[in-house]
Design a protein around this nucleic acid. Structure first.
Length: 408
DNA sequence: TCTGGGGTCCTAGGACCC
DNA sequence: TCTGGGGTCCTAGGACCC
């Protein structure tokens, strides 16, 4: 049974949204950056790309390439709102929609074809509605599976519409560089190159046994990728697996060494993680501290708690215990806190009465904080530090409610 | 003014148990 | 008595994605 899968990718999403909301930015080279000083280019407008300004570049590098580049700080709320508008449009054409990030989605339109006449017509309708309503453009890829639909949407940007027919697949893949495939990154490309594999055609013909030896379970998948075979279904938000980790990390404005300074930031991070975990209705038994040193080397240490936790205090003290066991010989550049081994509400054991009361207090504090920002209100023992945590949104971020957090 | 932040999945090695 | 082997859980790190 042949499926018809559509992949839709918003072009230069953050930058385009900014240009749309501020006409003064239109037709100018624009880049969206994180909120902190030490940041990178998150997205650049097509005008900026002409100068070579790309995602991941440092500000210094970007300004070298394009001195008149206009920088805009990421505006999470705005992108959230626009993203949800877009996803709503998608859902008018099929219930089988998978949100893969804030600006990307897969649609299985196999069942909608007869109603609309053709898949090109669905693509046309989606594109024109997004353009009319939000002033944004996107690239659409259409193919028999997700792997190829994603590849197709990348082939023509901006404002592309690319269809890959079943009979075209072998010729298309024969000389396609392996790195073009989603899932084959820099390291895997290098490893495959060392085996003499450069094109998807070569990959698809390579010995599965040898690839398995080199790559483990990925070996089989690699060969299938080379052949353009992919049976993964489009997974709608309701069918999606529950979240497995909740974490926050921040690159500090300046490297720090003092334990009390480190603790201050850990408190902020613990609060952010705790608040999100509570909003998701999850608690976790594993707490991880992530540290990046000034030389950029990064390590993590985790500790299992006797009971699942999600209060900011519990997370903070857990992460402090880990910190106490560390010998830091270098200044710290980045700190991160992660909660994993999650238990979802509903599956959780009944809380003792006292714990429940404590939780209710935490929830009411969260309600105030949700309205006024982090650290407006905190319970007594944590009142020593004030300041807002940074909230850089990433393209991997997804609208609230779109991620399955296991709440009925 | 060198190098963000949110995740998922996989692996290798060790502890521990039967 | 000279050393099996499977299973599970845990830790730390790395690849990859957007």
């Amino acid at each position: 049974m042949t499926r018809t899968i559509m992949h839709i990718d918003m072009n230069a999403f953050f930058a385009a949204v900014e240009q749309q909301s501020n006409p003064a930015l239109r037709d100018h080279p624009v880049a969206v950056v994180g909120s902190q000083q030490r940041t990178i280019i998150l997205t650049s407008s097509y005008e900026a790309r002409k100068y070579g300004v790309k995602t991941g570049m440092t500000l210094y590098e970007a300004r070298q390439k394009c001195p008149q580049l206009q920088l805009v700080k990421a505006n999470n709320r705005l992108y959230t709102y626009v993203s949800s508008q877009i996803m709503q449009i998608f859902q008018d054409y099929t219930p089988l929609m998978e949100v893969s990030s804030v600006d990307e989605a897969f649609l299985d339109v196999s069942g909608s074809l007869s109603y609309y006449g053709s898949v090109e017509r669905i693509a046309y309708l989606i594109k024109s509605r997004i353009k009319a309503r939000l002033g944004l453009i996107c690239s659409v890829g259409i193919a028999p599976n997700k792997l190829l639909a994603k590849l197709a949407s990348d082939m023509h940007k901006p404002d592309g519409l690319t269809v890959i027919q079943v009979e075209e697949i072998p010729e298309l893949l024969e000389n396609l560089p392996i790195g073009e495939i989603c899932g084959i990154g820099r390291k895997t490309t290098q490893k495959l190159n060392r085996l003499g594999i450069f094109s998807c055609g070569q990959l698809g013909r390579f010995s599965v046994i040898k690839l398995r030896r080199q790559f483990g379970v990925i070996g089989e998948q690699l060969v299938l990728m080379g052949r353009g075979i992919d049976s993964r279904p489009v997974v709608s938000p309701e069918q999606e697996a529950e979240v497995k980790t909740v974490g926050h990390s921040m690159t500090l404005r300046k490297d720090i060494s003092l334990r009390e300074d480190i603790a201050k930031f850990l408190l902020q991070l613990a609060e952010m993680v705790g608040r999100r975990a509570r909003r998701y209705g999850v608690s976790g038994r594993t707490v991880t501290l992530i540290v990046r040193r000034s030389d950029f080397s990064t390590f993590s240490r985790q500790q299992i708690q006797s009971l699942p936790i999600n209060s900011s205090e519990d997370i903070y003290y857990a992460v402090l215990r880990i910190l106490d066991g560390l010998l830091l010989t270098q200044p710290v550049r980045l700190l991160g806190v992660r909660l994993s081994n999650l238990q979802h509400r509903g599956r959780q054991l009944l809380l003792l009465q006292e714990e429940r009361r404590r939780e209710q207090l935490t929830v009411s504090l969260d309600q105030v904080n949700d309205r006024h920002g982090e650290f407006t209100v905190m319970s007594g023992s944590l009142l020593t530090v004030k300041g807002k945590g940074s909230h850089v949104i990433s393209p991997a971020w997804r609208p609230e409610g779109i991620r399955n957090i296991g709440v009925q």
